[in-house]
Computed example of a mutant assay.
Amino acid sequence: MYYKDLEPDAEFIIKKDLELYNCMLHKAFKICFDRAYKDVTYSETDQRMIKSFYGTSDYFPLSAIYEAKALVKSL
């Protein structure tokens, strides 16, 4: 299935999900980077912070956190 073949509602939903995921990835990267290189400690876990900030279920935050950790590790 191609993006151009989707109905307008589905296009909008997919676009919003991708934007949300990118925001989560950015925030997760900052958290992971701060922990790894700036010795910052947070009172909550990565997952709990991302979930509470964006108000989502587990799938998107966990995926963003794992990707962010991989990016930080590759530095």
Results as ranks from 00 to 15, higher is better:
1 M>S: 01
1 M>N: 06
1 M>R: 02
2 Y>A: 13
2 Y>I: 14
2 Y>F: 07
3 Y>Q: 15
4 K>C: 03
6 L>T: 03
7 E>A: 08
7 E>Y: 13
7 E>R: 04
9 D>H: 12
9 D>W: 03
9 D>C: 08
10 A>R: 08
10 A>E: 10
11 E>P: 02
11 E>G: 13
11 E>R: 12
12 F>Q: 06
12 F>D: 05
12 F>N: 15
12 F>E: 06
12 F>G: 00
13 I>S: 09
13 I>L: 11
13 I>K: 08
14 I>E: 12
14 I>T: 14
16 K>P: 00
16 K>I: 10
16 K>G: 05
17 D>Y: 14
17 D>C: 11
17 D>P: 06
17 D>Q: 07
17 D>N: 09
18 L>W: 15
18 L>A: 13
18 L>M: 10
19 E>N: 09
19 E>H: 15
19 E>A: 14
20 L>P: 04
20 L>S: 13
20 L>F: 08
20 L>V: 11
21 Y>M: 02
22 N>P: 00
22 N>Q: 15
23 C>Y: 02
23 C>I: 04
23 C>L: 06
24 M>S: 07
24 M>T: 09
25 L>T: 13
25 L>Y: 12
25 L>I: 11
25 L>C: 09
25 L>N: 11
25 L>D: 10
26 H>I: 08
26 H>Y: 09
27 K>V: 15
27 K>Q: 10
28 A>M: 12
28 A>I: 12
28 A>N: 07
29 F>C: 04
30 K>F: 03
32 C>Q: 05
32 C>S: 10
34 D>E: 10
34 D>L: 03
35 R>S: 08
35 R>L: 09
37 Y>F: 03
38 K>E: 06
38 K>G: 02
38 K>F: 08
38 K>M: 03
39 D>M: 07
40 V>K: 05
40 V>Y: 03
41 T>F: 09
41 T>M: 07
42 Y>T: 04
43 S>Q: 12
43 S>G: 15
43 S>P: 13
44 E>G: 02
45 T>H: 00
47 Q>H: 14
48 R>K: 15
50 I>C: 00
50 I>A: 01
50 I>N: 01
52 S>Y: 07
53 F>G: 00
54 Y>D: 08
56 T>A: 06
56 T>G: 06
57 S>Q: 05
57 S>I: 04
58 D>V: 07
58 D>T: 08
59 Y>E: 14
59 Y>S: 14
62 L>D: 04
62 L>F: 03
62 L>M: 09
63 S>Q: 15
63 S>H: 12
63 S>M: 06
63 S>W: 12
65 I>P: 01
65 I>Q: 02
65 I>G: 02
66 Y>E: 11
66 Y>P: 10
67 E>G: 12
68 A>V: 05
69 K>P: 07
69 K>L: 09
69 K>I: 04
71 L>P: 05
71 L>R: 03
71 L>V: 11
72 V>E: 05
72 V>N: 06
73 K>E: 05
73 K>S: 15
74 S>M: 04
75 L>E: 02
